[in-house]
Design a protein around this nucleic acid. Structure first.
Length: 573
RNA sequence: CGGGGCGUGGCGCAGUGGUUUAGCGCGCAUGGUUCGGGACCAUGAGGUCGUGGGUUCAAAUCCCACCGCCCCGACCA
């Protein structure tokens, strides 16, 4: 492609809205352009990168037997009513009405649609297993779009769905995807780790996230330095130390206006770990519960939801007042025999604790959990925090920011049951299809490559996803000789199946060199008057900054060698 | 949704009651000189000053409302 006829608009200055390295590089290089908050155009260069990524994804999904299809981006309300997610999705779902007033949404995901296909097309165990996938635009009205294309409101997702007759089949499909994803991200040249995840809204089945370690990662990954334990903070469990304080009778202490753990521990001059936080959770259809947690820990809501159900929410101040007779911050578990109380297992045997007195401006000291509170069950309900040890090996835990590139999870029969997607098994019994759901965010792969590989000067694309392989830089396109030589080289390289962008613009050299760096094309070939005179061409590798000088006749061979070398740097095996 | 910031040619910004046609740099167009790291000269095009309303002899500038974008938080794949 010729630069002077292309829609490539690099920016000389940083746009004011840049938020991260990848955002800056993608904007500056003219890969993307923002239209509205969280809504982007993929300009030709960016689109080429995304197409490269989708090709890799297709190859790897086809390899595990996936069949590509394309579902609609919009869908009618009814199917979402059936699964209950018309309500559940809330404000994250873009909704609209057609001319007749029927409700529609722009699909945030496609479980419902795929299950609808499955229920009409899958009749027998003989039709299983299946893996269906699509590469589709998804719409989610994010409360806060961020980091350019990393968290946007319209984004491209590869989503696949496995259909199996039983859990063994699902295990296999899950494993296939895990392997396919590993190959995909490796082929895209990214560094990543597979971590245990919590399914979130999707359900409680096994789930793994493919996390890239980058500064702007929005999730926290907990990683053991000693063994293979890797988990997102939500899914991570850590080992903490049980602490005991001097046992004694309960005494009331005056703590005027001191509500938070920091305020109370500061006021009483004790460590936060000496406190017990009492949290009151209510649900529209279930019994309220009290959760007890040591003051130096935070509650893990994912665990709470998995254990007790997604309908539980922190109680409002009014509810707390009504049940405890005190403001939030002054409540405690003692004397609450009519409410189920669950405690974090670090409180097992805890003595001498401080907690709310159920009386405004008062706390109590000397709480002995076993003696004074009827605990229904001790559970690990806390977030891991720095200093905790690995539950597998007691090794040291490390925390880092992870960008979620992909997520695989075992849905089980959640959707097939609610939507009635069943099949007849070998014995003629009707059973729900066992499903899995698997996603990859294409833009995140693109952004991640910029985050991990890019430098000050611009993007540095892994060759597998680079928009072009060779940047053919012609120094003076007004010079007929250079143009003719450049054309010759272009032909030879094209014949060797390279994808090439020729910078034939009549602008100063510096602009061309700078744009080459901004665009992040792996290999640069420079044609200039000096080179022509001596039949020398200069080849430069963006990633390694290596320079080679070759004669015209050696050029293609050398480029092939370099391409091979660059591919080998990130091969799967 | 709470707190804050911003909105002026394509991009980055200045102008915050009155210099008769709203500036600057970059970019763009035309001509010329250049041509191994954002070069130079000349000429030129391009603006509903986010939108609506108000105050005033006079508003980009003051007031009100709304919209948009961004940041921090809440929330979230």
């Amino acid at each position: 492609m010729e630069f002077n006829k292309s829609l490539i608009a690099t920016l000389r200055e940083d746009p004011k809205e840049i938020e991260s390295k990848s955002h800056r590089l993608l904007l500056r290089g003219g890969f993307i352009r923002q239209l509205a908050s969280g809504v982007y155009t993929y300009l030709p260069l960016g689109w080429r990168v995304l197409m490269k990524i989708s090709t890799i994804i297709r190859e790897e999904l086809d390899r595990i037997g996936g069949q590509e299809l394309l579902m609609p981006a919009m869908s009618p309300r009814e199917i979402w009513e059936e699964s209950g997610r018309w309500e559940e999705y809330g404000d994250d779902m873009f909704r609209f009405k057609d001319r007749k007033g029927r409700d529609y949404c722009l699909c945030p995901t496609h479980e419902e649609i795929i299950t609808d296909i499955a229920r009409s097309k899958i009749r027998s165990y003989r039709d299983l297993p299946q893996i269906w996938y699509q590469i589709q635009t998804k719409f989610r009205d994010e409360p806060r779009p961020r980091f350019g294309v990393v968290r946007s409101r319209q984004f491209i997702m590869k989503d696949s769905y496995s259909l199996d007759k039983d859990n063994e089949g699902l295990d296999k499909s899950f494993q296939f995807h895990k392997e396919a994803y590993t190959r995909i991200f490796r082929r895209c040249g990214l560094n990543f780790e597979i971590v245990d995840a919590s399914g979130g809204l999707m359900g409680t089945g096994e789930s793994k996230e493919f996390m890239a370690r980058v500064e702007i990662g929005e999730d926290t990954v907990v990683s053991c330095k000693n063994c293979d334990f890797r988990a997102s903070l939500e899914a991570a469990k850590g080992m903490g130390e049980v602490l005991k304080f001097e046992d004694g009778p309960i005494v009331e202490v005056h703590t005027p206006g001191k509500k938070t753990v920091e305020e109370v521990s500061g006021f009483l001059k004790v460590s936060p770990s000496n406190l017990v936080k009492s949290m009151f959770y209510t649900s529209p259809h279930e019994k309220p519960i009290i959760i007890l947690l040591r003051g130096d820990y935070e509650i893990n809501e994912a665990t709470l939801h998995h254990k007790f159900g997604f309908s539980y929410q922190p109680a409002t101040a009014e509810e707390i007042n009504k049940v405890f007779g005190a403001e939030p911050g002054f409540i405690g578990p003692h004397g609450k025999k009519d409410i189920d109380i669950y405690a974090d297992d670090l409180l097992k045997g805890a003595t001498g604790m401080i907690t709310g007195a159920n009386k405004n401006d008062y706390h109590i000291r000397g709480l002995n959990i076993e003696r004074d509170v009827k605990i229904k069950e001790f559970l690990n309900l806390r977030d891991v925090k720095a200093g905790d040890r690995c539950i597998q090996c007691q090794g040291e835990l490390e925390f880092y920011n992870g960008l979620e590139l992909g997520h695989i999870f075992k849905l089980g029969t959640k959707y097939s049951e609610t939507l009635g997607a069943t099949f007849s098994d070998e014995k003629g019994e009707e059973k729900p299809i066992v499903m899995g759901s698997y996603g990859i965010g294409l833009e995140r792969v693109m952004a991640c490559a910029c985050e991990q590989k890019g430098d000050e000067a611009g993007a540095v694309w892994p060759i597998s996803i680079a928009p072009f392989e060779i940047y053919l830089l012609m120094l003076n396109p007004a010079d007929k000789e250079i143009v003719a030589f450049g054309r010759e080289i272009n032909q030879a390289l094209t014949k060797a199946a390279f994808s090439i962008i020729i910078d034939n613009r009549d602008v100063s050299a510096g602009i061309k060199f700078n744009d080459f760096e901004l665009l992040g094309i792996p290999i640069r070939v420079t044609v200039g008057p000096k080179g022509i005179k001596n039949n020398r061409l200069d080849i430069y590798i963006r990633e390694t900054k290596e320079v080679f000088e070759v004669s015209g006749s050696d050029l293609v061979g050398k480029c092939l060698e370099i391409r091979d070398h660059l591919y080998r740097r990130m091969s799967c095996e």
